[in-house]
């Protein structure tokens, strides 16, 4: 494992911790898209089908369990926790996420490395992860006062994707036969979706102003 991959995983882990911190201690999920969180839960469920059959390392298994557990518990908090769910901006979070799931599934059935159930589900999870942030970005645009934790959560998620790209570049030059077009293209698409957000995030940081995305 190289430094970019480790940094990427840690950034991903921090993003989840920031979100759980907000939900668990402040008992608020204001500005957080349940649609995006449900998509992430689906992404991890589809991708980690091999969790008990394909052992890679203890690190890998533990991280998979953390991402599965955290994504499903965030969804549970936002849907069912009697205090947290009151702060959910239901009327603003209107992105129809079902419209993302079906095209991703069709694309995974058409474009994959191997036509097996696990491989198609794995590919589906990559395509879905690439677009899963969209409901969250739409909600951020509609939110007048984006609080710091929500802004940091999205920033950390974007940073995780950027670090994964550096990891792929590194692996491409250091490992023989390391070519994963599906992973790379969907990962690149995913990272590009954050470009706009990054621009405004750094502007607000530079000018010491509250983060605000123009509609």
């Amino acid at each position: 494992m190289n430094i970019f991959r480790l940094a990427g995983d840690m950034t991903h882990l921090f993003s989840v911790l920031v979100l759980l911190l907000k939900i668990h201690t402040i008992k608020s999920c204001a500005g957080v898209s349940l649609k995006t969180q449900e998509l992430y839960a689906l992404v991890f469920a589809a991708r980690y089908l091999d969790i008990f059959t394909n052992y890679i390392s203890l690190y890998n298994t533990v991280m998979k369990l953390i991402f599965l557990g955290s994504s499903f518990s965030i969804v549970w908090y936002m849907r069912y926790h009697k205090i947290v769910r009151r702060s959910y901006d239901k009327d603003q979070d209107t992105f129809r996420h079902y419209f993302l799931i079906l095209p991703c599934l069709l694309l995974a059935l058409l474009i994959n490395e191997k036509f097996t159930f696990k491989e198609v589900m794995w590919t589906f999870s990559l395509y879905l992860e690439a677009v899963a942030i969209l409901p969250q970005l739409v909600l951020l645009q509609r939110t007048r006062n984006i609080d710091n934790l929500t802004g940091q959560y999205v920033f950390l998620l974007g940073a995780y994707r950027a670090l994964y790209i550096l990891n792929w570049v590194y692996r491409y030059f250091t490992e023989p036969h390391f070519v994963h077009w599906i992973t790379w293209v969907s990962g690149l698409v995913q990272t590009l979706l954050y470009a706009d957000f990054f621009y405004y995030y750094f502007q607000s940081w530079k000018n010491n102003q509250k983060l605000h995305l123009p509609a």
Binding site: K114, Y164, T183
Partner: peptide, 10 residues
């Protein structure tokens, strides 16, 4: 192992 389908990333 099969290089194409080995998924060692998260």
């Amino acid at each position: 192992a099969d290089i194409i389908t080995e998924h060692d990333e998260l």
